[in-house]
Amino acid sequence: MNKTKHIFCVALLFSVSQAISANSPQQTFPETLSKQGSPVEALEFHAEDMQYKQLEAQAKQRIKLFSTKLKSALVGAIQEDGFKHAVSVCKDQAPAIAQELSNDGWTISRTSMKVRNAENAANDWEQTMLEKFEQRYKAGELASNLHTSTLENESYKYMQAIPTGELCLACHGKSVDPSLLQHIQTNYPSDKATGFTLKDIRGAFVVTSPVLKNLD
């Protein structure tokens, strides 16, 4: 695979951030908010609805920034010294980019059902959502439609699926080059993130917001 195709594949890998769906999250509001009785309750529901939409928009923006910055770093690494250098960039720069964008009470990270970095392991809710994303993706649903949100510990959490792209297969596929695999295992002794195919969800972006303020 030549460098031009590498770069093209990188663009495919991160296209999810350019095509984030405008649909509402699938787990948006607590059940109690869906019961609009009096006009006051209706206004409260509307205020919550608006707040959730603002939170979702901000979450998507952070995902877009994260994927754009990481794509730029990976393209440069591949052009400079191939996939081995890209592995080093993922190890060092991806966490730094996430840290840079985790500010004002927000945090952003990535997770997967099979992680390379143990620190990115999914919690119970994230694991359940990843499994649902995987099922829906294999059933033919677009990756850009695979997103959800929830309230967890009084904070808003948003997840957006990341599909497996051609470039991913070089380091995460079923037939990783032996020398590259050795380099990966040197950097990630507990690596579990291989065996993926183009039909799999590679993982997901996870964004959390500050604690929601009481609207009373």
Rank of each mutant, 00 (worst) to 15 (best):
I78M: 00
P95M: 10
R62H: 05
D81E: 13
E41S: 13
E48L: 08
S34H: 08
H85W: 06
D81K: 13
M50N: 05
E44R: 15
S38K: 10
E48R: 10
Q61V: 06
A47D: 13
K114Y: 09
L43G: 03
L43D: 08
L33R: 01
D104T: 04
A42C: 02
P39W: 10
V115H: 13
F83E: 12
E31W: 07
S72W: 01
Q36A: 12
I97C: 00
E41K: 14
A94M: 02
M113G: 14
T32E: 15
D81C: 05
M50Y: 04
R116C: 14
V87M: 04
F66W: 07
M50P: 01
L74V: 08
A57D: 06
D92K: 04
Q79I: 04
K91S: 07
Q93H: 04
L65N: 11
K71P: 00
F45P: 05
E56K: 10
R116E: 14
G37S: 05
T107S: 12
K84E: 08
S67G: 10
V40F: 15
L55K: 08
A59N: 04
T107P: 03
E44T: 13
R62G: 01
L65E: 12
D104L: 07
A47G: 06
K35E: 10
I108L: 06
N103D: 07
K53P: 06
K69N: 04
